[in-house]
């Protein structure tokens, strides 16, 4: 069976996703702070909708970042599995790595 995988590229792809998932949108501090100031900026306006508050946005931003990171980790783990399988195949066939 021919292995149709570029393991190094897969590893690199996984690492890139992990890095992306850890980058700023996962930390929605600026957005949260700005939204928290809205009730003070709009005194007397009937209660602000959920969409104008920080928690739901931060939840979904964090979840999205985690999904990216998880997918990157999954790709990396898969690349590791492929490398292991590739090494075993080489050993079984008596070929140098």
């Amino acid at each position: 069976m021919r292995l149709q995988v570029d393991i190094d590229e897969l590893l690199s792809l996984g690492q890139r996703w992990v890095e992306l998932g850890s980058s700023p949108p996962g930390r929605c501090d600026a957005l949260a702070a700005a939204l928290r100031s809205l009730p003070g900026a709009l005194p007397g306006v009937a209660s602000l909708p959920d969409s104008a508050t920080a928690p739901p946005w931060c939840r979904v931003l964090d979840a999205w970042s985690s999904a990216i990171t998880d997918h990157g980790a999954a790709l990396t783990a898969s690349a590791g599995a492929y490398r292991l399988a590739d090494d075993r195949t080489r050993v079984a066939l008596g070929r140098p790595s």
């Binding site: 600026a30 939204l35 007397g44």
Partner: peptide
């Protein structure tokens, strides 16, 4: 009311 703060929130979004 502070429209500048509302604009700042828009800018953050």
């Amino acid at each position: 009311a502070d429209p500048a703060a509302v604009r700042a929130a828009a800018s953050a979004a």
